[in-house]
Write a protein that binds this DNA or RNA. Structure first.
Lengths: 85, 85
DNA sequence: TAGTCATTTAGACAAATATCTAATTATTAT
DNA sequence: ATAATAATTAGATATTTGTCTAAATGACTA
């Protein structure tokens, strides 16, 4: 839960998630959407992976990142606990 | 949205929200549930208020904090955008 | 076997964060 | 008035975070 909220607490990382909502992409493709350096984006991707928000798959030199929704469901559950009973 | 995720990115603040889910409480009552100093809790409450997750109401010397769910709905909306269409 | 490309790792640094103690403000009670 | 109580503000400090450049790793290509 900590890693999840930590990962979501950054606008760039949230933008990456929204990018991946459309389709999986390689690290380089993702980096091209932002003005930060590739190592910076790589670091963001690492945090997203630690939170299990994305999964990565290496094919040759390319690493493809895919959105992983299951952990979002956990957040959803946490959230619903606050709904008026 | 930034203030919201920032406020949620701390286990103490999330615990405060869960406390307030039961009922509104004064700053002192909230502080009694944790091992941190009162100024520290006061600061956490300030961040929760900035995110509009709680509202505060001063009655004499006491300040009562109340959970405010409407902004959670915003988070819910953001979350649902990721659900498989 | 070089050379190039995709990505990550390492290390540095400024900015943000969580915490504390001490001081301040505002209110109530003696 | 004075003292006591509730809460916040101020200021300090150690830790975490986001970013960068330079270097390293691993894979393809000529």
């Amino acid at each position: 839960m900590n890693a999840l909220f930590k990962a979501l607490n950054d606008p760039t990382r949230r933008a990456i998630l929204e990018l991946l909502r459309e389709q999986p992409r390689t690290a380089g493709e993702i980096a091209d959407h932002f003005q930060f350096s590739k190592p910076t984006i790589s670091h963001h991707l690492d945090l997203l992976r630690q939170a299990d928000l994305v999964s990565s798959d290496k094919q040759g030199q390319f690493v493809t990142y895919t959105l992983n929704m299951t952990v979002m469901d956990e957040l959803l559950g946490w959230l619903l606990q606050f709904q008026k009973s």
